[in-house]
Design a protein around this nucleic acid. Structure first.
Lengths: 165, 165
DNA sequence: CGGAAAATCACCCGATCGGGTGAAGGTCAG
DNA sequence: CTGACCTTCACCCGATCGGGTGATTTTCCG
């Protein structure tokens, strides 16, 4: 669970990694379903032989199976659709036109995205393996292109232009 | 389905109304579970008498019930937690619960909202007719309550808590 | 009424940010 | 090849921000 969230945070730009995580989810779900069936049969055997009961009512079986698979269904359903919760803004798509219109370079966009996450200039520099001065230069150019003079204003404008979620 | 979404959208501030909706949801879920059980028994009867089969294998029963209640579980789970999905809608509404939970005062919220618009501390002070020091105090308290130490991080957190759009 | 919480303001200090200038190397189209 | 553009980095300096402490007044609830 934590790894999934972390991965989503760190690599939200990489769809291949996201697909990989989903596959793992499905696999785990299938495995757990099999496990549940086995447990179910095991419980029935225990009940039958442990208490010398040969014929439990059909209603009991139905109830047992129903409860178990309802729980499993709820769990699986939530797990397989948890993406929607994590991604918070489902239908965000980078406005490529705005990028061209404002002449914002690839590197500047990266800095912008990290800034939007609340990182300081030093943290951005560390994340991109460049010096603090470089980040400041990129940000200065960004502020010029966005026609702002504060990072919070930049975030506002960038959101309006659909450059960040 | 659509009515539920509409209701959740329109009245997300009114806990009583939301509770009412939830109760309706639960009631409907219980009703549908009963219905499912009835349908299940009905299907079994049909299978037994329609095809002149007296003793279906226990595995068949298990499979049938499992599939049915898995589907039902997924459905119920998604339905009862659909709130999270609804929250993603673009329309913004202040989360009053979060305000109380985080102990954020009215004045602090005003400062937060102005900060979110990209204003500097001095501009916020001018807008609220208070001194720069006051704004700084409010922001310090906000940062404590939001557990951040930068205004951009505060914006992130505030957005997560649905305190700002 | 009394106390808790909120709102207001002040001062200090170090860290960060914003703005300006300059420069070196790489890429790529004309 | 050459010029435009991107990327990288450096230095400087003033403004702003963040954090801490302390204080007074106002508001509001028990």
């Amino acid at each position: 669970m934590w790894t999934i969230i972390a991965a989503t945070n760190s690599f939200s730009l990489f769809s291949p990694l996201r697909t990989f995580c989903s596959l793992v989810d499905v696999k785990r779900t299938i495995l757990l379903y099999g496990l549940a069936l086995a447990v179910l049969v095991f419980i029935m055997k225990i009940i039958q032989y442990r208490f010398w009961v040969k014929d439990l009512t059909i209603e009991f079986y139905i109830g047992l199976i129903a409860v178990m698979f309802t729980v499993l269904g709820v769990w699986a359903g939530l797990r397989l659709t948890r993406k929607k919760v994590v991604y918070m803004s489902p239908e965000f798509e980078l406005d490529q036109d705005a990028l061209n219109r404002l002449n914002i370079s690839k590197r500047e966009l990266e800095v912008l995205q990290l800034m939007a996450k609340g990182h300081s200039n030093q943290e951005i520099a560390d994340a991109l393996f460049v010096s603090l001065n470089t980040v400041k230069t990129h940000l200065s150019n960004l502020f010029l292109k966005l026609e702002v003079n504060r990072r919070t204003q930049a975030l506002q404008k960038a959101k309006e232009h659909r450059l960040i979620p």
